[in-house]
C-alpha cells in the first residue's frame, strides 16, 4: 500500500496499464481534487462537473495504455478533463433543442434551481462566489478555460498552454481578452462604492 502511494504518477499509470488495480485508484486520489476544481469552475454546475469528472477519469482509465510519457501525467489528465468539459458544454447546448417534455428535464432543472438558489450565506461570501462564477459563464469558453487555469488555479502560462495544446501566446491573449470581458461583471466586487461607468468608456466590448 505504502509503496503505491510513493510511486510517481508515470509509474502508477504504467502499472495500471499492466493491470495493477491499486495504481489507478491512487492516481484518482491524487488528482481528483484539482480535476474537480477545473470542472466545477469551467462548467459552473456541480452535476455537470461531476459527470465531466467521471467521463474524464473513465477515459483516462481506458486510455492509459496510449499515454506516451512525453507529457506529465498531470498535464495529460488536465487535458482529458478539459476535453470532457468541452463535450459537456457542447451537449448542454444541444439538449434544449430536443423536445423531450418528460418529467426528467423538469426534475433536473428543479434540482439545478435549488442548487443555485439554496446557498445564501449570511457572510455574503457565497454572494461573491456566485457572482464570479456567473461572470465566468458570460465569457467564451476558451477564454474561461484559460482564466480558470492561469488566474484561478495559478498554473504557469506554459503549463496551461500544454494542457490546452495551444501556444503560450494564445493562452496569454485568451486570458487578456477574458479579463477585459469579465471586467464589467466584476467591477462591483472590486470597488463597491465606485459607479460602474468606469468599466466601459465607449461602450466598447462590454456586453450587456
Amino acid at each position: 500500500m505504502d509503496a503505491v502511494q510513493e510511486l510517481p504518477d508515470k509509474e502508477l499509470l504504467s502499472r495500471h496499464a499492466r493491470g495493477d488495480d491499486k495504481a489507478f485508484d491512487e492516481l484518482v486520489r491524487r488528482h481528483r481534487e484539482r480535476m474537480w476544481a477545473v470542472a466545477i469552475r469551467v462548467l459552473g454546475d456541480p452535476e455537470e462537473a461531476a459527470d465531466a469528472l467521471q467521463d474524464a477519469f473513465l477515459s483516462a482509465f481506458r486510455a492509459a495504455g496510449r499515454f506516451r510519457g512525453e507529457a506529465q501525467v498531470s498535464t495529460w489528465l488536465h487535458r482529458i478533463v478539459v476535453n470532457a468539459c468541452h463535450d459537456r458544454m457542447r451537449r448542454r447546448m444541444v439538449r434544449p433543442a430536443v423536445p423531450t417534455d418528460d418529467a426528467t428535464l423538469d426534475v433536473l432543472s428543479n434540482e439545478r434551481a435549488k442548487a443555485t438558489a439554496s446557498v445564501p450565506d449570511p457572510a455574503g461570501r457565497s454572494d461573491s462566489r456566485m457572482d464570479v462564477q456567473a461572470a465566468l459563464e458570460q465569457i467564451p469558453p476558451e477564454q474561461r478555460l484559460a482564466l480558470v487555469l492561469v488566474d484561478m488555479m495559478g498554473y504557469r502560462v506554459d503549463e496551461a498552454a500544454g494542457i490546452l495544446e495551444v501556444a503560450p501566446g494564445t493562452v496569454k491573449s485568451r486570458c487578456a481578452r477574458g479579463r477585459a470581458r469579465l471586467l464589467p461583471y466584476l467591477a462591483h466586487l472590486r470597488n463597491p462604492e465606485r459607479p460602474r461607468d468606469v468599466t466601459s468608456p465607449r461602450g466598447g466590448d462590454g456586453r450587456p
Binding site: D25, V28, W36, Q54, F57, D151, M152, V198
Partner: peptide
C-alpha cells in the same frame, strides 16, 4: 481594474469535491 481581475479570480475559494462525487468516481471505476 484589469490588473485586479486576476487577483479576484485567484481569491475565489475552491468549491470542495463533494464526498458523493468521490464515491461515485470510485464506483464508476
Amino acid at each position: 481594474a484589469l490588473g485586479e481581475v486576476s487577483g479576484l479570480l485567484a481569491d475565489e475559494p475552491v468549491p470542495p469535491l463533494p464526498d458523493s462525487v468521490s464515491t461515485r468516481l470510485d464506483e464508476a471505476i
